[in-house]
């Protein structure tokens, strides 16, 4: 396996008026060339902050990378000057942001916004860039691209704006594409098109993809490997099959149990009771302990180390300790609407 990106013990904090928020607390991740790594997990667990750190886009102040390394083809991105970082951003590494409205400039036409990166990174002339912008809009399935390039973001629906954002990200054929909820705003037929498009692009250009999504159906469809985040940490990683069919962390169990099952009627969905930890005041031990049905004394006191379940699956959970009681995953993990 060829490592493209390796994150080691990444820590990111935000100083706010009230407190210091420890958004990312020691994240380790690898992304290999040509693979899709999905990051799933609690809302607020640090998925977007991790990806913004890779892009060098943590606003400072209030944000700061307080520790760790982000190695991209061996270069530590956290050590680069802003000028050097600009060579990577939007060119080698490209990102589709979660919020399509804020990632588009409301006062600039769609065409100009797509052309901007092409002119900057690929040195295209104005008219070449304009032509390519129309092609890219067409590629992401926007009808009437010749007309649409001249319009402004507010004239597009939520889903169409997201397709524009995708067009911008694809413009320079990046080596790593970070897609933060790229299809959340899209209907399933267009979602299917966009996912196919991303897979196509990946095959053609050997792009690696970090896919952040809450839609576990999309994960099952796209990912080779999955990382599960909770409370600023990665609690479990594994191949897509390991995470869906042989998950080990109680949070992963809870996540898989919460999905509505398409083929069975449920009176109520199974939510994980309780609220996520406040990262301004993170717990000492395992961040999930307060909500975990299997929590033991040790869990609230000490953060568990990662243990190897297989060559490809790691989990940070005290249940893996040989002294812990044997706990079976709940039957409510209904994969694909079938209960296993």
């Amino acid at each position: 396996m060829d490592k493209l990106l390796e994150i080691k013990d990444l820590q990111v904090t935000f100083k706010t008026y009230a407190a210091t928020v420890q958004a990312v607390r020691g994240v380790n991740l690898t992304v290999n060339k040509r693979e899709t790594l999905a990051i799933v997990g609690e809302s607020g667990s640090g998925k977007s902050v991790t990806s913004k750190a890779i892009m060098g886009l943590i606003p400072n102040p209030p944000g700061k990378i307080t520790g760790g390394e982000i190695l991209f083809e061996g270069t530590d991105l956290t050590k680069l000057s802003e000028r050097k970082m600009q060579k990577y951003r939007g060119n080698e590494i490209s990102m589709i942001f979660q919020d399509p409205m804020t990632s588009l400039n409301p006062t600039m036409t769609i065409g100009k916004q797509i052309a901007e990166g092409l002119r900057k990174h690929q040195g295209l002339s104005k008219s070449e860039a304009r032509k390519r912008a129309v092609q890219l809009l067409d590629l992401v399935g926007i009808p009437n691209p010749q007309v649409r390039v001249k319009q402004y973001p507010h004239e597009f629906s939520g889903g169409m704006r997201q397709r524009v954002v995708i067009a911008i990200a694809l413009a320079c054929n990046p080596k790593l594409l970070i897609a933060d909820e790229p299809t959340t705003a899209l209907d399933v037929t267009i979602q299917a098109q966009i996912l196919d498009l991303m897979k196509d692009l990946q095959a053609k250009m050997d792009t690696a993809i970090i896919l952040i999504t809450h839609d576990l159906g999309v994960v099952a469809n796209m990912a080779h490997r999955v990382a599960v985040m909770y409370g600023g940490k990665i609690v479990e990683t594994g191949t897509v099959d390991e995470i869906f069919y042989r998950p080990k962390h109680p949070y992963t169990w809870g996540l898989l149990s919460s999905m509505p099952k398409l083929h069975t009627r449920q009176s109520e969905l199974l939510a994980i009771p309780g609220t996520p930890p406040d990262l301004a005041n993170p717990p000492k031990g395992c961040p999930f302990a307060a909500r975990c049905p299997h929590a033991m004394k040790v869990c609230t006191e000490f953060m568990p180390d990662y243990s190897d379940v297989s060559d490809t699956q790691q989990v940070a959970c005290w249940l893996q300790d040989e002294r812990a009681p044997k706990v079976e995953p709940p039957e409510t993990i209904g994969v694909g609407g079938r209960t296993r």
Binding site: E42, M259, P260, E268, A271
Partner: peptide, 20 residues
């Protein structure tokens, strides 16, 4: 209007249970 698409599935479930 897409009240839960930005939430993780567990919180989606919480919010939907709450709405219900």
């Amino acid at each position: 209007d897409e009240p839960i698409s930005a939430l993780d599935v567990s919180i989606q479930a919480q919010v939907v249970n709450l709405l219900e």
